[in-house]
Nucleic acid binder design. Structure first.
Length: 499
RNA sequence: GCGCCUUUAGCUCAGUCGGUAGAGCAGCGGACUUUUAAUCCGUUGGUCCCGGGUUCGAGUCCCGGAGGGCGCACCA
């Protein structure tokens, strides 16, 4: 049909273009096809014809499937092929004596990668595989570029991320994970909506990005000729809505932090933040536990355990609980006491004892100590409670213990999965905490945001007692799908531009 | 930002001591009416990431650069 063109990529494309030209010249241009009436999916058809005995063929209506041809095995006057759709793989079987000389010959120009509509009936092949016996087919689109190796797929990590569409075509596991992510997000919304919450959208472009400690991305509005920052949290705006009376609000939105990129950090990521008026941190913990257990049940099909590599993580309720200071004391054999940790000088000494680099602030030192001492032990789902107030500028102080706040973080597999607290609604205390942050910023902790004084003003109108939570959805999806790199749960992770 | 590793055919990978580039798959031609990464016969295909240098000669050694991965640092 076409000349021997060699097999450099350009030649492989040229050969496929020749096939396309040949199809067009005999009035079979695949790109004129506008739709195909699909009435079945690979997974459904396979499940429904499981009853078929050896070499038995199914009676009944003709099935119509569509998908991408991923493998072609030509045996002279018959062809076996693999068709993939979003639900999975199904084998096709075609015979020359049924299709006729001409239609069968069309398959010379139908190759791996092409998109196909097929009609036929199910049967069980001699070797026992449920197979669609094709009686009718339509080429729906031609792949002009060759696909990667049929066995190894696309392994090159850089190409997988840069050419994610190819990755999705040839690595079914990637497609499964990304579709699972979509389902997890949808189920999270459904669960939350079921508890009477309102989903809202707050701005990503802000004059002062606050609500977390992180360096923001900077940008510029031409219309106003002003510098703007991309949000680093949705917290302050969502609590403005609590002040305004929405009472139960949440946002699942993109957050931007201009910081390092590694297996657990992408500069843009998806965070759920949720606020409930008249709840406290214990109500939130209950809600959190129910949500996570529910999602685990969904992805496992009813189990309460996740396998993560060698590890097995049990989500049987209630999850474990340990105090922040109590935990550090326990895993340091009592050496790192509350008294030492809550004192800036003592904490710095503890950090030095652990060989940690010098921290610019008390809070920074506490974070490092926590990560070194307690976090590695938090494999099973564990609520770490009663955080020091110094590292919780937006949380309410514990009644009777003002050095601590009503806050917890949930850890699974040594990864922070949620962060929740009873919100500080005392405007005077909030103002004082912001002022303390200004001082810390002056000490050199550049991640500390500029205070949002309008937020204090909002509190002065009165915010009901409120509990709030933040959940990094990318990390939650990592946990639920067993991925070790955040790039494997983000469709298009940020990559450096080629020079 | 620092360190280690990595980049060879469309894909997955070999390439020894520095001697002028290989395999499998894909492609192309042929055989084959129940295959399973089909098989069998034949066959084409290279900016060895880029730029310098050493050398009679560089995929290989040296210097510089780019992309990527991992670790550290940074960071929820």
């Amino acid at each position: 049909m076409h000349d021997d063109l060699g097999k450099s990529e350009a030649a492989l494309i040229a050969a496929r273009r020749d096939d396309l030209a040949a199809l067009r010249s005999c009035g079979r241009d695949p790109f004129v096809q506008v739709r195909y009436s699909v009435d079945a999916s690979a997974a459904d058809v396979l499940a429904q014809s499981a009853y078929l005995g050896p070499e038995e063929r199914a009676a009944g209506r003709t099935l119509h499937l569509a998908g991408r041809l991923m493998l072609k095995r030509t045996m002279g006057k018959t062809i076996f092929a693999d068709l993939h759709d979003r639900t999975g793989r199904i084998q096709l079987y075609l015979r020359k004596d049924e299709l006729g000389e001409e239609r069968f010959a069309d398959w010379k120009a139908i190759e791996r990668g092409d998109l196909l509509g097929v009609a036929g009936f199910m049967f069980r092949s001699k070797l026992g595989e449920l197979t669609l016996h094709v009686t009718e087919f339509t080429l729906l689109a031609k792949a002009l570029r060759p696909l990667p190796d049929k066995w190894h797929g696309l392994q090159d990590v850089e190409k997988r991320y840069r050419l994610r569409y190819v990755d999705l075509i040839v690595n079914p596991q990637v497609l499964q994970t990304m579709m699972a992510r979509s389902r997890i997000l949808a189920e999270t919304r459904r669960f939350i909506d079921g508890h009477g919450f309102y989903e809202v959208e707050t701005p990503t472009l802000l004059h002062v990005a606050g609500g977390a400690s992180a360096r923001p991305f900077l940008t510029h509005v031409n219309a106003l000729d002003q510098e703007l920052q991309l949000r680093i949290a949705t917290e302050l705006n969502l609590k403005r809505l609590i002040v305004g009376g929405m009472e139960r609000v949440y946002e699942i939105g993109r957050i931007f932090r201009n910081e390092g990129i590694d297996t657990t950090h992408n500069p843009e990521f998806t965070m759920l933040e949720l606020y409930a008026a008249y709840w406290n941190v214990d109500d939130m913990r209950e809600f959190n536990e129910a949500l996570i257990a529910h999602l685990v049940e969904m992805v496992t099909g009813g189990a309460d355990e996740l396998r993560l590599g060698e590890k097995s993580i049990s989500f049987r309720r209630p999850f474990a609980r340990i105090g922040y200071l109590e935990g550090i004391a326990r895993y340091s054999d009592g050496r790192f006491t509350r008294e030492r940790l809550l004192d800036p000088v003592g904490a710095a000494a503890v950090a030095a004892e652990l060989g940690l680099p010098t921290s610019p602030t008390h809070g920074h030192a506490l974070d490092k100590i926590f990560e070194a001492v307690l976090e590695p032990h938090l494999l099973q789902p564990t609520f770490v409670t009663d955080y020091p107030a110094v590292i919780s500028p937006l949380a309410k102080r514990k009644a009777g213990d003002p050095e601590l706040v009503d806050r917890y973080e949930l850890f699974c597999a040594s990864m922070e999965v949620s962060n929740a607290f009873t919100e500080l609604n005392d405007p005077d205390d909030q103002r004082a905490r912001f002022e303390a942050q200004v001082a810390e910023r002056a000490q050199g902790d550049t991640e500390i945001p500029e205070p949002d004084w309008d937020y204090v003003r909002a509190l002065e109108y009165g915010m009901p007692p409120t509990a709030g939570i933040g959940i990094g959805m990318d990390r939650l999806v990592m946990l639920l799908t067993g991925q070790v790199s955040v790039r494997d749960v983000i469709l298009f992770p940020l990559q450096r531009q080629h020079g």
